[in-house]
Simulated scan of single mutants.
Amino acid sequence: MGALGIGTKKRDTPSLNFSQIYQASSLCEMNNKEICNIKKSIKNIRRNYLSSTYPAPYSRQAILVILRTQRFLWRNVQYTYARLTGCAMIGLLMGSLYFQIEYKDIYGATSRTLYIYMQVILIGVISANNVIPQIGTDRLVYFREKRTGMYLPVFYPISWAVGEIPYFLMATLAVVGIGNGMAGIGTQSPSEFIKYWTVLFLFTLCLTYFGMIITFLAPVPTLAAFAMSIVTSLWVSALGVVVLLSDKVLQMDVLE
């Protein structure tokens, strides 16, 4: 019966009204002032940054998103190691094939031109194709962060564009330093080497940015990689690079 509450005594009305005592106290006044100050500060912050839907100003959002993307790339040790070692192997391969190539005649000059052409194709296309699956893997995190309204969506592609710059600086430096040093192309002076390295870096960056744009627009990364391969193939086939025949082959054709 006691468990059902039957037979228990009813409590008496309290002799003191604690709510009225709190409202008349100095503690209530201090708490109300503190709440008003917090509300004013929040309104001022929103008015200054014009971003009432986001918890931080635009500048801080951009910095944090760029740092997040940079950590994502840096912690992917296998991907970073494969990129740098792959560029070093390209430099060794190209340098050994065109080791100290001469350019005293038209055939040597053509070969040196083909070296630059192949170098640009290899590092540019490989870099663009490598970044597509990485963005595809990170897009799921971006969709979750976008739904929660953590930052302005435009900062996501900007973070990838900025985050790839140091990696391509190192990659193109490895290709130019090893391959061009062995082939003797663009290494006559430090200024010439820096100019060659800068042009290759900018070209690689632009081609990679093109791959990023396709990845952001494509619904799935597989479709982006397929579109990138088609566009690259069309671009390569339309360049019009001509490989000249040697004098011995021309003489044999004349005799025949």
Rank of each mutant, 00 (worst) to 15 (best):
I6Q: 09
G7E: 02
K10S: 09
R11H: 05
F18Y: 09
I21Y: 03
I21K: 06
Q23P: 03
S26D: 08
N31H: 07
I35R: 08
K40L: 05
N44K: 14
N44I: 12
Y49I: 14
L50P: 00
A62N: 01
L67R: 12
R68G: 15
R71I: 13
W74N: 04
Q78A: 15
Q78Y: 15
T85A: 14
L93E: 04
Q100H: 14
D105W: 03
I106E: 11
Q119V: 13
V131R: 07
I132W: 04
Q134L: 13
Q134C: 08
I135W: 07
T137N: 13
T137H: 14
T137E: 14
V141T: 05
V141L: 08
G149V: 05
I158D: 00
E164T: 10
P166G: 05
I178P: 06
G179N: 00
G179F: 01
N180G: 04
G184A: 11
I185E: 05
T198E: 00
F203D: 04
G211Q: 06
I213G: 02
A225E: 10
S229W: 11
I230D: 04
I230L: 12
V242N: 11
K248L: 11
K248Y: 08
Q251V: 15
Q251C: 15
D253N: 11
E256H: 11
